[in-house]
Amino acid sequence: MNKQTRELNRMNNDLDKLLYLENNPAMTDIICYLRGANISEYNQEIIRQDLLEMVLSAQERNENIETVIGTDYKTFCDEIIATFPPKSLKEKMIGFFDAISLGLSVFCAINIILSNETFVLIHNLIVGEPLNFEIDVTAGLIVSLLIAFIAAFGIVNFIMKKSFEIGSLFHNNTSAILIVLGSISIFLVIGWFGRNTIFTVNIFIALFFSFALYLTHRLLSRI
């Protein structure tokens, strides 16, 4: 997200807080659908600003979002999206590698922090025993990483494209909690059965790798 888009995003986030509770779910579904559209982030924020202006003005007139936009949000969004140029290949590639960098960076950081070797290292540091800076990279970890990435891209795309159909599912906390718990269970099973070490890596190199990926994300997100 470049500076101009970030600024617009920040302004829109502030305006978002002024929405009445009754208008929030529909607005969230619309923005979610726009996020999945093949248009630039800047144009997404421009549309968001226009829609917020419409809905906030409607609120002042004691009208709701349905009065302004109607009830067929999908057709409304599709008509808007059609008026903007699609993302260029460059924009798509930057977005893809940005998501990969951030995801991998967070995944590495979590695994370094939560690994057994880190706990042993901290323990040994406290009690003064010999230190081992090597972390095991297991088959389960690599499989989990691949599944997490594919699932994340698949799920996010699905939610964005079908936000109007499944929006109500995620407005219900019980369903969302069940989905999260189900996903955690799958990763625990993979983690348990895939304990074979493929290779080891020095904890400082792993931390540096995670940090470098995070910097890459910061760099790409500013283009």
Partner: peptide, 15 residues
């Protein structure tokens, strides 16, 4: 004819 109906048309006119 609501504001929402004409919004995509206004965008097209601008484009």
């Amino acid at each position: 004819i609501s504001e929402g109906t004409i919004y995509p048309l206004l965008l097209r006119l601008e484009k």
